[in-house]
């Protein structure tokens, strides 16, 4: 039951992240980085929800792969888990940047510098969501349930 509570909390946090990625008044993507022209275009072109979904997919997907696909005693140490976190933290911003850049290019916009700075946030969000996803789903993994910290 306790594990199910972890999962529900993890899902709630993730959904909250997604909802706060779609709102106008307070948008989680505008807290740490804000450039009026750039962020207005991100909002108008509906980029925020998509990059939030990409980040969630990569983070939860990474955790899912680690706990259920890799799921091996050979890879059950904390640094194996950390390596996957590193991969998630690189992959998510790269995919988001490519998507972001494609949408901007389709609309004839040029915000290369701003996009790179903006995607630094994705590194952080992807890593945090990976931790959330790990603590949500690790309990049902047959070989890696004690990674990263045994509980």
């Amino acid at each position: 039951m306790k594990h199910l509570v972890y999962l529900i909390i993890g899902i709630a946090v993730t959904l909250l992240f997604f909802i706060l990625s779609c709102t106008d008044g307070f948008n989680i993507w505008e807290v740490m980085y804000f450039n009026q022209g750039f962020n207005d275009k991100m909002f108008n072109l509906n980029v925020y929800p998509v990059i939030a979904a990409i980040t969630i997919l990569v983070a939860w997907g990474g955790a899912g792969i680690y706990y259920y696909a890799i799921n091996s005693v050979k890879f059950d140490r904390w640094y194996h888990w950390l390596a996957v976190l590193g991969a998630v933290a690189v992959l998510a911003p790269v995919i988001c940047y490519i998507y972001n850049d494609t949408v901007f290019a389709d609309n004839g916009l040029m915000y290369v510098g701003e996009s790179i700075q903006f995607e630094m946030q994705t590194v952080l969000f992807a890593a945090l969501l990976y931790v959330v996803a790990s603590y949500s789903m690790r309990w049902w993994s047959s070989n890696c349930r004690h990674t990263p910290l045994p509980q």
């Binding site: 999962l7 899902i11 993730t14 997604f18 969630i56």
Partner: peptide, 14 residues
């Protein structure tokens, strides 16, 4: 089931 529902909700919202 819960995880699938969350992913579907996010994708549907997009």
């Amino acid at each position: 089931l819960l995880m699938s529902m969350m992913l579907v909700a996010c994708l549907a919202a997009c």
